[in-house]
């Protein structure tokens, strides 16, 4: 199974690489102009285009690119002029830390809120949590981020306003990231719990006199976890590259921002490297969430 997954991973990465390669070339824009800057004359732009091999036919560029990644060489960044891998590798730890912490906060609070809402269905608490999560996902991320920053960094001076370095730097961005994600986890948990609570085995357990908490946490939640894990796995993968607004607001050196900036700069090699890394991370996180699902629900193992 692991081997098959590994094969699938290679296919996914290849698919994404080629798609990204083509997409970047399909999008209008001129990397040579971006390197040269708006003030440079056309002959300078032309010289740069030749120098980077951007005047070569597409299939030759693609061939070079694929040959490069086959040997683990992502090329040289157009913007920083250093090996892409050097630029990308420093982004991995911050990206991972931010996603894991944001996800962790959202899972902890989201599952708790979801279970609460499900067991108190129809009460004020349920409605209140529903409104809270709706606001969480609807209010613009950068607004939430800046407000937190104004209060905790500028007013109270508890944490630095932005940047990367100490664990204090992580607090605000992780929280900001978690807010939006909290909504989908808590909603999913609530809905999933409601389903499960009606299932026969839960009723049976209750009827047999198993304590309520035990029923909830053991029987019900365990079975309700399936879609939550799926969503969490998927969102985690997406957070790695999709936390761009949070990263931008807090000047967090993440992969998502690097990718977006590189797309804007038409820094083809960096974009390609970012997307490949993301594809790998996403495939790994879906794999892990599938494994978790198998663990939680043995019925799946038969497949």
């Amino acid at each position: 199974m692991l081997l098959r997954r590994l094969g699938a991973l290679v296919v996914t990465v290849l698919l994404v690489s080629v798609a990204t390669f083509l997409a970047m070339r399909l999008v209008p824009g001129d990397p040579a102009r971006m390197i040269a800057g708006p003030e440079a004359s056309a002959d300078v732009v032309e010289a740069i285009r030749r120098d980077w091999g951007l005047d070569q036919p597409l299939h030759i560029q693609l061939g070079r690119f694929l040959a490069g990644i086959a040997t683990g060489d992502f090329g040289t960044s157009y913007r920083t002029r250093s090996p892409v891998w050097d630029d990308v590798k420093t982004r991995l730890l911050p990206t991972f830390l931010l996603s894991v912490t944001g996800l962790g906060l959202a899972l902890a609070f989201g599952i708790a809120a979801g279970v609460l809402a499900a067991t108190r269905r129809g009460t004020v608490l349920d409605t209140g949590l529903s409104i809270l999560s709706t606001l969480g996902i609807s209010l613009p991320v950068f607004w939430v981020g800046i407000l937190l920053m104004m209060f905790f960094a500028a007013r109270l001076r508890w944490v630095p306003s932005s940047g990367w370095g100490t664990w204090q730097h992580l607090v605000l961005p992780a929280f900001t990231l978690g807010v939006g994600f909290f909504a989908s986890i808590s909603r999913m948990t609530r809905s999933s719990m409601l389903e499960v609570l009606q299932d026969d085995y839960v009723r049976t357990a209750r009827a047999k006199g198993v304590p309520r908490v035990k029923v909830l946490m053991g029987h019900a939640l365990r079975n309700a976890l399936l879609p939550i894990i799926t969503i969490a796995g998927l969102e985690f993968g997406r957070l790695l590259g999709g936390a761009v607004i949070t990263e931008t607001v807090f000047a967090w050196p993440g992969l998502g921002t690097l990718m977006v900036n590189s797309i804007k700069f038409r820094d083809y090699p960096t974009v390609q490297a970012c997307v490949i890394l993301l594809a790998i991370c996403i495939a790994v996180s879906t794999f892990l969430s599938d494994l978790l699902n198998l663990y939680v629900d043995p019925r799946l193992r038969r497949g």
């Binding site: 996914t12 990204t20 993968g237 990718m259 797309i263 997307v275 594809a279 996403i282 495939a283």
Partner: peptide, 12 residues
């Protein structure tokens, strides 16, 4: 292909 689509940047 779904995994590939997730990885593919939205702006792109």
């Amino acid at each position: 292909s779904i995994d590939a689509l997730v990885a593919f940047p939205r702006i792109l």
